[in-house]
Design a protein around this nucleic acid. Sequence first.
DNA 1: TTGAAAGCGCTAACAC
DNA 2: GTGTTAGCGCTTTCAA
Lengths: 328, 328
Amino acid sequence: MKRVTIYDVAKEANVSLATVSRVINGVEIVRSDTRDRVQQAIEKLGYKPNAIAQGLALKKTTIIGLVIPEASFTYTGQIINGLLDVAKIYKYNIMLHTVTEGISEINDVVENIIKSRVDGVIIYSDKLQDAELSTLTKYDIPIVIIGNKAAQEKISSVYVNIEQAIYEIVDVYLQKNIDDIVIIEDRKNRNSIKKMVSGASNAFKKHNKEFNGLIEIPAEYRSSYDFLSSYLKKHKHSLVLTNRDSQAMACINAAKEIGIDIPNEMEIICLIDTKYNSMIRPQLSSFFIPSYDLGAVAMRIITKMLNNSNDEKPVELSYVFTPRQTTK
Amino acid sequence: MKRVTIYDVAKEANVSLATVSRVINGVEIVRSDTRDRVQQAIEKLGYKPNAIAQGLALKKTTIIGLVIPEASFTYTGQIINGLLDVAKIYKYNIMLHTVTEGISEINDVVENIIKSRVDGVIIYSDKLQDAELSTLTKYDIPIVIIGNKAAQEKISSVYVNIEQAIYEIVDVYLQKNIDDIVIIEDRKNRNSIKKMVSGASNAFKKHNKEFNGLIEIPAEYRSSYDFLSSYLKKHKHSLVLTNRDSQAMACINAAKEIGIDIPNEMEIICLIDTKYNSMIRPQLSSFFIPSYDLGAVAMRIITKMLNNSNDEKPVELSYVFTPRQTTK
DNA sequence: TTGAAAGCGCTAACAC
DNA sequence: GTGTTAGCGCTTTCAA
């Protein structure tokens, strides 16, 4: 099919481009019979406005860049769903970028975002640090960060206070005089772990104790399972805190294997809630982190920024601890 | 920061736009000292070519549309990872669209894709039917379908032969004279289920039997668990085939609850493999479907189509049955 | 090797 | 209420 342009429609309907433009943009001042003529021409020719040309003329693309970590989508997926649902309402399109390791790759992504002239960018990734964010703001690209409170001016954010969550739960255990608490870290979510540790440390401090229960495990499920299988034989802990469900499951399975009774001999709490938490046995106690809302709110914030351009305050969403079968 | 254009760079470097354009596009015929001058100007001004303007001028956007179902990304996630890894190599950007129910919403997505002038579109969704695909091809948008063999000319595809997979496994059981086999369906993946049923039916036919073991369950995990808990009390089956891991888990948990011994009294096989299959207990026997590769290959095919424009043959990827603890 | 100028498809003053 | 025209930022042909 021959690419049909606004010009073809104008000719077909015997009007000027301007009038066609008015019709497709819903500008009111067009007489209804010419509007109809134009509409018919559009139908007949199957004309679809070229968003790229519109983008050039208007200096805005109605595209929002989204940056997420590669790998598991079990958690990120919900964020994306929230994001997209809101994006649809406001007619924004989403351009998807993933980042893994490698500083050069990160620079590529940033470069790419700038070139593509997105109207704004939503970032859910620890990988983009202040430097990258600064170059983005230098190019006047509105930014919303998911999962962290933004550290810079002009950057907005929506997040859950992980530190607080861990603080509270650890405090509960310390009050019951249970202090053999560890946090498992697989080095894949450094930033989250840092906050978890910080929360735990604060709780310990409150009780005049010192927290040093950070244990490193391998990044892959299989090897972390193997690691824990031998580790747990020698080390008993009262409470294990994990970031991801996969880590908790490695822990559960290893404990079962050894014969550790969950939750009576050892309790496990996972920070992030996925649909699998209540499917596995024992069902995994976890925090409910409103991931869908994180995405939805992020998108809402960005649309606001694009309309008012005055910066939005960081938004803190609340978590809920959901006890299941891995806690007493 | 003031938007800097190719014109600013030209002025800064004392050359014409054309020369700057040549430099940023790596056209060889520029003298090296002018090239250097231009490069310096670009650095100094922090110039980044406007992909939108390039898109207009070149009539191509280097954007690929991606259509996926909303909801769970546990499986789709791997497809996206494969897709993005290859997209990065070829410098394509991905614009993400999700579809759920609702014919109007689907039309919106199609409309949106056409307007955004993507160079091609990769579709992983049963929701887009022949009608929608036809309008896409009418607008000369190259299409690659993931998960189904394309039914139309000019449309390419990459898929796994689910029908065959189920045929083979069911045949194995029938040869052992086990024919109390059911397939669980939750109405969320109609197309897949249809193929599974077809595969099972063929196997039964081969043994001069008739397959009618399709059982409908609720779509949500919780209600399907409840349903199965009461269903399995009255109905014993030798083999349960499911599409998604969540369905299999509902089945496993319900069976456990009732006291059905898996795999001795009842076996369970899940079609789609996720990382959770080997984390849960009992570990779930399943087919390994190369989802990452489905994405990667789809992207490769699209790039080929964009370069040669001769249509690509459908690509069939292979599956591997991976027995774990839910089968004998 | 470089520059001038037309054109990609659209929007938005401004004029009629 | 409708048309004319000058951009939006870039590529590319054709001259020089």
